[in-house]
């Protein structure tokens, strides 16, 4: 795996390969010893599983241990007020998958289960909007994967170590990178999109009510989706984050380390420590 984003960039330029995804595939072949066919087959399986999770999530009723959280995503089938129809539907998709995950449905962790609604909602909506092929989406998925791996090696992908910025924040950055690639953006634009995503969600805490991956996790997936579209839009328009992506990742890692124990997946701080959340906790665990 690439040591950093700048290492990734240098190697890509050196390789003289046109397509970023093709270049990542070569690196994957080199480190894992898998063939290109095996890599694409696995990518296809991930893509299809994400599709299936979305279909199931939209058609099945999900039962959750927090009563108030049941059926919230269904409310998003109403006509939009501020978002356009596409964006509202992407938000509907991500909430549905996140709910389905909370109800023990089969999903693809990306990078984690709690943040698994972000990437598929962003990718499938972008594919539909841009009218790009499935083949191109598989490559976008590969681009998203390498972004997650580099951030994971430099920082963390676990809420218990780095807060929600490491889960939904990274899911958002992976998604933004993928769709910036899908839209034909350059590697520099992809890096800007990652930086903007991580900067916008920096410091986001992990504060699950009653310690469960339900509230606020399901709704945090929605900000991951909107943030990904926003960051990609900014990057493709030429907006710069000013701070290079490797420095942003290092900053994010430091923020995660400084975050209090109560704010890292313990269910003891933030939203989890509100009177209503404590009430819910009592109700669930006394039953």
């Amino acid at each position: 795996m690439f040591e950093s984003f700048i290492h990734f960039y240098d190697e890509f330029i050196k390789s003289k390969i046109d397509d970023i995804a093709e270049f990542i595939i070569l690196e994957e072949i080199h480190t894992t010893g898998k063939t290109k066919e095996e890599i694409l087959e696995r990518t296809n399986k991930i893509y299809e599983t994400m599709k299936k999770s979305l279909e199931n999530a939209l058609s099945e009723k999900t039962i959750l241990p927090i009563e108030e959280a049941i059926g919230q995503s269904d409310k998003l089938t109403s006509a939009p007020f501020f978002l356009d129809e596409d964006m509202k539907e992407a938000v509907y998709w991500t909430m549905s998958i996140a709910e389905y995950n909370s109800g023990m449905g089969v999903i693809v962790a990306c990078p984690t289960a709690g943040s698994s609604g972000v990437f598929p909602a962003v990718l499938f909506k972008a594919e539909e909007k841009l009218k790009t092929s499935k083949e191109k989406s598989l490559k976008a998925l590969i681009v998203g994967g390498v972004v997650g791996a580099i951030i994971g090696n430099k920082a963390t992908l676990s809420g218990s170590e780095g807060g929600c910025q490491a889960e939904v924040g990274v899911a958002s950055a992976m998604s933004a990178a993928a769709i910036t690639y899908l839209a034909g953006g350059s590697l520099s634009q992809i890096f800007e999109a990652i930086s903007l995503c991580l900067i916008n969600l920096m410091g986001l805490v992990c504060d699950p009510v009653a310690g469960l991956v339900i509230s606020p996790c399901i709704k945090r997936n929605t900000i991951g989706v909107m943030n990904a579209f926003l960051a990609s839009e900014l990057a493709l328009s030429g907006v710069s984050s000013i701070i290079p992506v490797d420095e942003v990742v290092a900053a994010m890692s430091n923020v995660g380390k400084k975050m209090a124990y109560e704010l890292k997946e313990t269910g003891l701080g933030g939203i989890a420590n509100t009177p209503t959340a404590r009430e819910i906790r009592k109700r669930i665990f006394e039953e």
Partner: peptide
């Protein structure tokens, strides 16, 4: 990072 297919929630 992106390959674990699993039953949720965590």
């Amino acid at each position: 990072v992106i390959g674990h297919i699993m039953v949720g929630p965590s």
